[in-house]
Computed example of a mutant assay.
Amino acid sequence: MAQLSGQARYSTVNLTYFEPGSGYENHNSDPGFWSRVGSAVKNGAAILGQIFIALVTVWPFWVVGLVLGFVIRNYRRRNKNLTRKEQ
């Protein structure tokens, strides 16, 4: 053991250290406030886009509803005019 400690006394240790460059991401920390705000804006825009796509997808129902509304409105107007003429 004494021989090993004597050899360790004259040995050289080379250390290399560096700082992480760009692109390094620390996964241990929570994202900052503005990062979270940006993420929330992106998520909100994605949700609005999905809602718009859902509304466009059901366009046949919009057309049928408009046609039915037009027919019902004209039917009521005609019946209102007929009942006034009868009186």
Rank of each mutant, 00 (worst) to 15 (best):
L55F: 10
T12S: 06
S5A: 12
K80V: 05
G23F: 00
N43F: 09
D30G: 00
A54I: 04
V71T: 09
K80L: 14
G6C: 01
F33V: 10
A54T: 04
Y75E: 05
L82I: 13
S39N: 15
Y24H: 03
S29P: 00
F18T: 01
Y17P: 00
V71H: 04
P20A: 07
E19L: 09
N26T: 00
G38C: 01
G38W: 07
A8L: 15
W34M: 13
A40G: 13
A2T: 10
G6I: 08
L4W: 09
S39G: 15
V56I: 14
A45I: 11
G65W: 12
S29C: 02
R78L: 13
P31G: 01
Q87C: 07
T12W: 02
L68T: 12
P60N: 03
Y75K: 09
K42V: 14
G44V: 03
I53E: 12
V63N: 02
L4I: 15
F52D: 09
R73H: 13
P20D: 01
K85E: 15
V63P: 03
L66D: 05
P20T: 01
W59P: 00
S5T: 11
R77N: 14
A2W: 09
T12N: 04
D30K: 10
L4R: 12
V71M: 09
K80C: 07
L4T: 11
K80P: 00
L15P: 00
E19S: 05
G44T: 10
R84M: 07
G21N: 06
R77W: 14
I72T: 11
R76Q: 13
Y24F: 13
S5L: 12
A40D: 08
R73C: 11
A2H: 11
T16I: 02
I51E: 08
G23H: 01
N79S: 13
K80I: 09
R36H: 01
A45L: 15
V37D: 06
W59N: 01
M1T: 13
P60V: 02
P60C: 02
T16D: 03
R9D: 08
F61T: 10
E86C: 03
G21F: 00
S11C: 05
N74F: 13
V13N: 05
G69T: 09
P60G: 03
N28M: 05
Q50F: 04
G44I: 05
I72G: 03
V67R: 07
H27W: 02
I72P: 01
W62S: 06
K85L: 15
P20W: 04
N81Q: 14
N74D: 11
F18W: 04
Q7S: 08
T83G: 01
F33G: 03
G6F: 06
N81P: 00
K80Q: 14
W34C: 02
